[in-house]
Every structure is written in C-alpha cells, then in structure tokens.
Design a binder for these strands. Structure first.
Lengths: 225, 225
DNA sequence: ACGATATGAATGAATG
DNA sequence: CATTCATTCATATCGT
C-alpha cells in the first residue's frame, strides 16, 4: 500500500516541550514566539482516536469538548478549541480522502451521516492510514509536564508581543499576532482571564454579534455570549 | 526546539511500490523503501506545471483531482493525494518564496507584476480562479524541463481585482481574525465565571445524533472518555 | 560525511 | 462541512 504514516511520536524530544509552551524557549530565528500550535501527545491522540473510532464521536458539542479536553489535559496542555479542531479535521480529511479516490463523486454525498464506529481503523487505504493506536515508545516519553491540575501555568509572558518582523509587513503580521493573543494566559496576578474562553467562534449561525457586521466591535466586546 | 511532533516514521518496509511506478524508474529497484514517497516522473511534473501555470489551476477540487490523477496515471503510479499535495505545496512554496523578493520597492513592482497566467478557465468554470490572480514566474526549480510558458498566452484578463495586492495575500489575511481575541477576561480578581472555555462553539447545533446512544461516554468523566 | 535545498506528506488552525 | 493556509517533518539529492 502506500506509504504509511504514522503519527507522531518521538516523544522524547518534542514531548518534553510539548507540555508547556513556556513561551520562552524558541525564538531561535525569528522572533516568533513559540507557542505556535498545539502539539498533541501520543496519549492525547490515542484517546482522540479512540473516541472517534470506538465511540463514534465526530462532532462533539461544547460540553463534550470540555470534557474531552479536560480529560486530555492530564496528558499535556490542551484547550477546547484544539479538540474541536481535531475532530473537525479528522473528519474532514477522512472524507476528503474518500472523495479523491472515489470514482463517482456523486456517491460522496451519501454516506455523510454514517457513523461507522467500526473498531479501530486498521489498515486504511491510501492516505492517512488512520490510526494505529499504539504508542511507539513503550516506556519513556511523555513525561509531559502539565500538572494535572489546571492548565497553563507556565507562560510567563508569551502573549503577543512584537511582530515577526522578518517576514511581515506591518499589517499582516499584526493580524497574526492577534490570533495568538488568545493564548495569553494569565497566570497570576493579572487576571484577565485565566483561561479564557474562546467565545463565540465559528459562527455560522450564531454569534453573529461577534464580528460579522461589527468587526470593530471587539473594542467593546465582552458582551459576548 | 519547540515541541513538535508530528509525523515521522519510517515504517517503510512496505513494499508497496510494486505495481508499476511508471516510467520514472526511480523506484524501480530497491525493494526496500520503495514506496516511500511518490516520486513524480518528469512527464507528470510537466503536466502538473502546465496545469498550474498555463491553466491557472491552483487548488483543484476533488473532481479535478480525480481527473488529473487519472490522466497522470498513464505516466506512472500516482494517487489523488499526490496531486492534491502537489498543488498545495507548489502554491504555498511559491507564495512563501515570493514573500521575500521584494526588498527593493522598485524592483518589487516589476517583479510582482509578473505574468498572470491564465488561460481562461474554460469549460465549466469549475476552477475557482480564486487566487489565480497572482501568478508568478517560474524560475527556480529543479532542472526539470517543463517549458511551460508556451507562447502567447494570455490575454491577461486578470479579473478580480484588487485586494490581492502586490504581495499577495498579505493584505487579505487581515480581515477578521480576532476570534479568540475576545478574551474577555474578567479582569478582576474573580474569574468571571469559572473557567469554562470556549462557550458556544459548534454552531449549527446538532451533533447529538451519535451522542444519544453513546451518551454514556461522557456522562462520566473518567470512566470512559 | 555533512549542510543546504527541494519537495512530498501531514496536520493544526482558520475561513466561508 | 469544504477549502485553504501555514508550518513543520522527512527525505532524496546535490554541492563542497
């Protein structure tokens, strides 16, 4: 078959880091602040796949997302949005794969609602090869920090900051930083929200108040959901 | 640095290569890791580039991918995902590279103006043309032939218009992205509500379908999720 | 032998 | 949901 794929691992190296984005670290070359994206640990992936394949979870709602992320938090830092995106992507990619390989596009429309819950995927066909729920590294590894209790605790400052300068050209860069700003974590004294929530996201139906029409609204935000 | 994890593996050993990888001959021998990754043959690359530069294809959709891969299959083994990735990567790297080449303003303008490929979308206009506006010049790249640029070409109609801006999407990105910025934060010592995060997401409602039956999964936190 | 580069593959994050 | 973007990993190849 095909290449295969594997998913991640090498916990050894990354793992350690994964736990906390400490915020400091990096900055090797550009000043991009580290925390870029969530790096799921093997255990987190294992669990997510288990939910997906064995429990048929495909599009968890807010409550479920909370539970899941809470559960996964013990294996590493994670936020609700990560869980949300994970399911969305996993599902989307599975379908996409199907669409590319299928001969009749028409068929694609059907089968949408399927919730196969077949046990473990095993032997997938092309593409992703889906899950192989098994960690490659038996022992060591994931010694992720991330204390089981609350979440963030290390980010000293991370948050926004300067821009990337290197590639950026003003505006753009700034925008990007905006996105990150949510990770600012409060740790400590200032409060600002210690865990902030991602309010109203992915609207489409609701949360229009958000920025739909009044994107500028964010200045006075807080009315949010 | 940085936590990274991701794929990485090597599982190879598969031996899938077999089949016929076409005339590329690259992976002919070697029983070992043969199938590592798709190795496009020169003909395949020629065609892909032709589509990209002369036809403006940048992000083919599923149907197009199927057609393209079917067509390329006569020159060697190939799958839909290869085509998909090829376009994605080609486009991304082109953009990425271009991000720099603009040190000198004067030069920049000239450079940027490059040729907007186009050859019309033709046919059913399935092609989104979306970003076909910004074409780019070939140049670097492997020594593959790919004469491209045939002759004439292009009426340069560049529809669309503005916004894409010289540097491409730089400007575009700046639109609405403050989603998470809504860190409403509670300011203040007390945490607003607790720390539940990201409320309301998952618009469209729904997503309970599977849940009903497997509600048990989440009702209890540690048990099974 | 490296180090640099080109490029396939994978996947988190967004957007529409 | 489908699509797209950005990043990063993994490798093959090439240059010195």
């Amino acid at each position: 078959m095909e290449p295969q794929q594997q998913q991640q691992n090498q916990a050894a190296t990354a793992a350690a880091a994964a736990a906390e984005d400490g915020g400091s670290g990096k900055s090797s070359y550009l000043c991009r602040q580290s925390s870029t994206r969530w790096a799921p640990t093997t255990d987190q992936i294992r669990i997510l796949k288990d939910l997906y394949y064995n429990n048929g979870v495909r599009s968890p709602n807010a409550e479920q997302i909370q539970r899941i992320s809470a559960r996964l938090r013990q294996y590493g830092k994670i936020e609700g949005k990560n869980v949300f995106y994970w399911f969305q992507n996993h599902k989307a990619r599975e379908r996409q794969k199907k669409r590319f390989t299928s001969s009749s596009p028409a068929a694609a429309s059907a089968a949408v609602a399927d919730v196969p819950i077949h046990r473990a995927a095993v032997g997938n066909s092309v593409w992703k090869t889906e899950d192989s729920v098994q960690a490659k590294y038996p022992s060591y590894s994931h010694g992720l920090s991330c204390p089981s209790s609350s979440s963030s605790s290390s980010p000293s400052m991370v948050s926004v900051g300067h821009m990337v300068g290197g590639y950026g050209y003003g505006a753009v860069t700034m925008e990007n930083n905006f996105r990150e700003c949510s990770i600012s974590a409060g740790t400590g004294s200032n409060n600002i929200g210690h865990n902030f929530q991602w309010a109203g996201v992915t609207p489409q139906s609701q949360s229009y108040y958000f920025f739909d029409k009044s994107k500028s609204s964010f200045t006075d935000e807080k009315t949010d959901i």
